[in-house]
Design a binder for these strands. Structure first.
Lengths: 337, 337
DNA sequence: TTGTACGCGTTATCAT
DNA sequence: ATGATAACGCGTACAA
């Protein structure tokens, strides 16, 4: 038998109301009874049932996170930021892998609604009208993470992808490179695809280096395999390339492996810069230079925003995190020759 | 306003009891009323509130997972197996990172109790008496994953670590290696530490190859950095080593990177075999040969076991998964010279 | 300061 | 086949 507030009340010779007040710091009890009740609670090892609590208070101390089909390594740090922060706030999180599948996403949203989550963090994917409407009906706060909506006004946390891609490209240029190619993710991806391509093109243009769209090659996604497959195509088209900007670290590692297979030395014959700065960036040979997103911090911030919205019942300001290139050893400085 | 079973009942001109029966396939209603009610439900877009449901049914359709401080890349696949399976069963999971901290673990156990999870999956760490007693009082089923308890009789899912380590070492030996070193995790780790060392030693002994304990070097954990730091120490002690068995893939990558720094060619001058077969094993240069654990399947199986215990209210048989070496390119065959 | 009683949304028991 | 109602464990308005 689980022990309830009634048991405590009985044993302490008070009403359940009093126990409840003490539990929730609501005024209306004397120091004496508080002490007495606290003792009994301790003695019985009583803990309130959060289910019952949630039923009445409308707060379940649970938040939902929607994740699309992208690198688990990438999301790992983000999720850690979210989970740590959530638990620090005495709540827990339900993680949902939507696989970027609309139907699955709706199913998960329904699950989150059934479970009465207090808020939702929607990640790394375009927020479709359908999703938005559903959440709106739930009347629960939502924040966007690593994505942004132009259709609906929802607070978000992200890095400026175009700017970061610009920075990466510019870094290459400043190291003396002129023949630069890019391997992007899916160009139809409005959040991590096109903007990074734009940033690349913009940098090249700004430095008045001729580029065509043939300089950017793309596969479906951002994976190691995508890099592995895309690199040979790119290098065959442009054998004179001295540097490559990869739209993700995994792609970059794929490029490095493919280059190794083709007997092209990195960074001596080919420089590579990545994007994300996930764990594996340090593990490659040579260690990967990359533009870093503060993944953990972004997860943390998004979570803090959700809690602020939940508790103050008002909206909150979006936050753009700054990126930063992390220099390791995959880019050669052509100026030093 | 959220719409409840009452709204459905009212609109369908029946009692809430009838609606509830239809919702739960309890006998006691006619085809007609069923149709009518189902229509109304659809029309209103009604979904039962799982919180209220959980309050009375004592099932929350939530399970808890306890994770220690180990490679997030490793646990990633396991977690995916758990989450997928859980969601397929209409439940969701609360993931708790204990950091291998006893106090934190107890806090999380308390959280899981408060949230009334239906069951607990305890992972990759020794089950302390304190944890066991707590869960026992909860009267909820538990299964062990990648760990095993000799003190308490709890169903588990794992690979035979000693045997797998034996297999890895034997693989090296069969490729003609005799001077073999090992970089292990923490030897005091009773689940992934000592057993793997034992397996290594056992293989060497069985093939009558002299080894001392100096052939195995260990750092605190199983990380890339551990491998990075341990390798130079090991190779200085035994400059004649031709092969290394690393107790994890991350350690193995650390070894490869360290070897690269020291200008030692893998696999030409040094062969390396890993353990786990996580994603990054294919990304290294050269791609890593390793002994694979069926991580996703293990997560899946543990989850199925938990659900069986929950639903049939009885215990269940443990399961030892078989391991398998995945040949890539980090081990040289000395017989082919 | 303290207690009584109702309600949260659902399932289960007992009538009808 | 169906409905009224207690119960799940807790918070809170209201009364005392």
């Amino acid at each position: 038998m689980t022990i309830t507030i009634k048991d405590v009340a009985k044993k302490a010779n008070v009403s359940i109301a009093t126990v409840s007040r003490i539990l929730n710091n609501k005024p209306g009890y004397s120091k004496e009874t508080e002490k007495k009740v606290l003792e009994v609670i301790d003695e019985l090892g009583y803990h309130p049932n959060s289910i019952a609590r949630g039923l009445i208070s409308k707060r379940t101390h649970t938040i939902g996170v929607l994740l699309p089909k992208i690198s688990s390594m990438l999301m790992n740090e983000v999720i850690r930021g979210i989970e740590d922060t959530t638990h620090q706030n005495g709540s827990s999180v339900i993680v949902c892998h939507t696989e970027s599948n609309g139907q699955k996403t709706m199913q998960y949203l329904q699950l989150l609604k059934d479970k009465q989550v207090d808020g939702i963090i929607f990640t790394s994917e375009r927020l479709k009208e359908e999703y938005y409407q559903f959440v709106k009906k739930m009347e629960k706060p939502m924040v966007l993470l690593s994505t942004e909506s132009y259709d609906f006004s929802i607070p978000f946390v992200k890095v400026n992808d175009q700017h970061a891609a610009y920075t990466a490209t510019e870094y290459l240029i400043k190291k003396g490179h002129r023949n630069i190619g890019m391997i992007s993710g899916n160009p139809e991806d409005q959040v991590a695809g096109q903007p990074r391509i734009n940033g690349f093109l913009q940098a090249m243009n700004n430095y008045q280096i001729p580029v065509s769209h043939e300089h950017v090659v793309s596969e479906d996604g951002f994976s190691f395999e995508d890099g592995l497959k895309a690199f040979p195509r790119l290098i065959r088209q442009h054998p004179d390339l001295t540097a490559i900007f990869a739209a993700s670290d995994e792609i970059a590692l794929g490029v490095i492996s493919a280059a190794y297979e083709m007997n092209i030395k990195v960074p001596d014959q080919l420089s590579v810069i990545g994007y994300d700065n996930i764990n594996i960036a340090q593990m490659s040979i040579p260690p990967l230079t990359t533009v870093a997103q503060p993944l953990y911090d972004m997860g943390e911030k998004a979570t803090e925003m959700i809690f602020e919205m939940i508790e103050k019942n008002q909206t909150v300001e979006s936050r753009i995190f700054s990126h930063q290139v992390v220099e390791r050893k995959s880019v050669k400085d052509l100026n030093k020759e």
